[in-house]
Amino acid sequence: MQILIVEDEASLMESMVSYLELEGFRCEQASDYHTAVCVLDKHDYICMLIDLNLPGGDGMKLVKLARENQSESGIIIISARNTIEQRVEGLDAGADDYLVKPFHLSELVARVYSVARRTRMKGGEVLSFGVISILPEEHTCFVGQQQVDLTRKELDMLMFLMANRNRVVTKESIADYLWGEYGGGYGSYDFIYTHLKNLRRKLQDAGSPDYVQNIYGIGYKFSLDKSL
């Protein structure tokens, strides 16, 4: 579970590393273009996070190079540039995803999982958490043996919470991950509460314990042990 992070801002690198390491990933760090090129072949990375503005070289070139070297790895561009042209250019260069700074770490983790699933496991694996299991490819969810009928948004939300298990995820990050630009600025995040309420009800109706904890109004925590 190696991840390569190429980012020149030390503080941000630190945050990403500590969040991802908590998740069980091992991180290879590179803060400039040349270091990045050197460590490109060092491991068989599950995912590479590449900033576009790098000292010593163009991040876009690094993306192309990385794509040539490790065709099985997922590549996520993390950049402050948020134009459609840039996104298209990045995806054309071989990136699997494009995350705009500033981003939520929880969103980063969810995307890393999602990209890794697509490139590595070819979507064939089963995600499980307690009694809940999800087949991402078939968009189906089970509690034990019983299939639970979830909407697309509810399933995405569940997968997001599972990716960030045992973590506090903020309402903003859920809104940003699931609704993108349509999440914020509407005065309240109550719609997330509504969706989450439906999700919890459906899971509990199927016999699952309630894994969701409300954390002081700031967000939610998805964990096996609710007392944590």
Binding site: S15, M16, S18, A80, V100, K101, P102, L105, S106, V168
Partner: peptide, 17 residues
């Protein structure tokens, strides 16, 4: 501006944990 914002954002998120 986006970079320091990204730092604040990520640090807050870590702190919340």
């Amino acid at each position: 501006l986006q970079t320091p914002l990204a730092v604040i954002k990520s640090k807050t998120e870590l702190l919340i944990q």
